[in-house]
Design a protein around this nucleic acid. Sequence first.
DNA 1: GAGCTGACTTGCTCATGCTGAAGTCAGCGC
DNA 2: GCGCTGACTTCAGCATGAGCAAGTCAGCTC
Lengths: 159, 159
Amino acid sequence: MEDLRDDRDSWSSENCSVARAMDIVGSRSTVLIMREALLGTRRFDDFVRRVGVGEPAMAARLKEMVAADLLERIPYREPGQRTRHEYQLTRKGRELLPVITALRNWGDTWAADDAGPSIVATHHDCGQPVRAVLRCAAGHEITDGDIDIAAGPGIIRRS
Amino acid sequence: MEDLRDDRDSWSSENCSVARAMDIVGSRSTVLIMREALLGTRRFDDFVRRVGVGEPAMAARLKEMVAADLLERIPYREPGQRTRHEYQLTRKGRELLPVITALRNWGDTWAADDAGPSIVATHHDCGQPVRAVLRCAAGHEITDGDIDIAAGPGIIRRS
DNA sequence: GAGCTGACTTGCTCATGCTGAAGTCAGCGC
DNA sequence: GCGCTGACTTCAGCATGAGCAAGTCAGCTC
């Protein structure tokens, strides 16, 4: 199969999944909210405190994220309390875990302070640290540079 | 080992690798420049055309990325041409491949148009598609939710 | 030495994201 | 039925990012 990189100008990146993903989760606060949500945070004021963003910004971000179907706004009720709403991850949101993990791995390696990473994700079954790695469908792990770029069905060729 | 999520308020996210990574590669255009760089683009005007961002913004972004050590500005000379500069990925930049790949996978699943993805990364050796997956150091693949959060050496406990 | 081209820079304007302070609003506890 | 609390909203105001148009600058070609 041809490697598309050999003729990068023959195709456009109009239909680019990376760009589309960035349009949805491209802002710093959205990513940090996802980090918190993946760590289990659900309530408005916890998000505000833990992400370190102001209330107006948080309200706006959460509204966007519910509209984008990353979070779901669900009513709940603790005994003796009135009904409130919490923000739960949808499947679409939960599937950002590899993205956040890859970002955390990279930050641990290239942007951590001397003390090292503050948190480590570990495999529940064996306790070993978890990382985002590249793997092909045949099960081979990818080491630097073993990748070709092939055309997918949604490619838009330039005239 | 305790799961930190059980007491999320006992530690702060001051020293957060995700936030630090976002401070460096958090903007849409930076990510799209990384996409292009990982696809092999090196020259200023190619970046401008392929990323679809204006020249002033591109010049500013590239300068930032060189300062952040994601790219290196290297002089080169084609025969009959004068000396120019190209932008080559550093190791720090190349190691963002899992992040971009995870983002592309997610975009393919959740934000692609009906035609499907426009490009597919394949393993050079076997031709199978490549994905970013979570794996622990013992080699187990992580399926949804098998993750604990443990304290790392850089954790900052709240007083 | 005039023109061309690639790689920027400058200047201006618009849009977005965030901040801080203050206000609103809905119920449960009393 | 008054106050409290959690969850917001409203209102300036600032900083950043991006767009477009135009200008600059170096050095190779002719």
